[in-house]
Simulated assay, not measured.
Amino acid sequence: MLNLKTTALGIAVLLAACSKRSRPQPQPAYSYRSLNNVEVRYLTPFSLDIDEDDTDDVFFTVALRNDQQGTHAMFTAVALKTAKMLSRPDSVVRLQAGDEIPVLAPYPHEWNGFVNHLCTILLPAANPSDTTWLGDWVAADKKFMGVQFRKGNDTFLGWIAASVDTARDCMILHDCAWRHVNAGAVKAGKRLE
């Protein structure tokens, strides 16, 4: 009789332990903030402090470059100090709502801490009025870029929503969200669990 009670108690403990493991663990909440549709243009850059800790994380600008082809107005996102942008060798990755932003970027993507190109307006030297837009972010309507940044010893993973208005020659920054990297990958555009 004692063996039967011991066996029953062991099974009950085992079932309780298994049921605790199978429950999903709560994920850290996203932090979110609106960027109030700030516009980035030539001579009007914007420095983004994602978590408002007095350390700028990403600098958005439109830089000019001249060469034999003509004048290039390059829309760029520069990751500062402790931040990185999800990119390919030639540009910032343009994500759709719901796309996964991974902790470790799969090839050919990488977490890049340097200047990252979004798109370019080319004003040809031969005919400056014949402008051409080039790049993945041309006419983007609320698309997402992946971002990683550090605060002290902690790393955070998140997204920044942006659009490129080709009629007005500007980039528009809408909002951003992030959470601790220990929670794993995030979904572009997601801000609630």
Rank of each mutant, 00 (worst) to 15 (best):
E193I: 12
F46T: 00
D57R: 01
N127T: 02
S129K: 10
C176D: 09
D56F: 15
Y107G: 11
V58W: 03
L95H: 00
W178K: 02
R191H: 14
P102F: 02
R33Y: 05
V103D: 12
V181E: 11
L48T: 04
N127C: 02
P24C: 05
R33H: 02
I101K: 04
M85W: 08
V103K: 08
T71Q: 12
F156K: 00
V38R: 10
A177I: 11
T6R: 15
L104K: 15
K142F: 04
H109C: 02
G135Q: 06
R179C: 05
Y42P: 06
G98D: 08
R21Q: 09
S22W: 10
I101Q: 06
L123H: 14
R88T: 15
Q148P: 06
D130Y: 02
V93G: 03
K151G: 09
I172Y: 00
L122Q: 03
Q25L: 08
L95P: 04
S31F: 10
I50A: 00
G70T: 01
T155V: 13
G135W: 01
R23T: 05
M85H: 02
W159F: 01
N36D: 11
R88L: 09
A167T: 01
A126Q: 13
L64P: 13
T61N: 14
S31A: 12
P106C: 02
C119L: 10
I101R: 01
W133E: 12
P108Q: 01
T55I: 09
F149G: 09
A126P: 06
G10H: 08
I172F: 09
V62F: 08
L86V: 00
S129L: 11
P89V: 06
W178D: 00
V40Y: 01
R41Q: 14
Q68D: 10
N3S: 06
V38K: 14
V62N: 10
Q69Y: 01
K5M: 14
P24H: 14
Y107M: 11
T131K: 07
L95R: 01
M1G: 10
G184Q: 15
T166E: 13
G113H: 07
G70V: 01
P124F: 00
A16F: 08
T44Y: 15
Q69P: 03
Y107P: 10
A77W: 11
R21W: 13
A126S: 08
I11M: 12
F149P: 05
P26S: 06
S31Q: 13
P89N: 08
V138M: 02
P89R: 06
L118K: 06
L134K: 11
D130R: 02
G113K: 07
T132M: 08
L118Y: 11
T61Y: 10
A185P: 07
G98M: 05
G98R: 02
D67G: 07
D67F: 01
W159L: 09
L43H: 15
N3K: 07
V103T: 15
G135S: 08
V138F: 14
L64Q: 12
S34E: 07
D130T: 03
V103L: 12
A161W: 04
G70L: 03
A17Y: 05
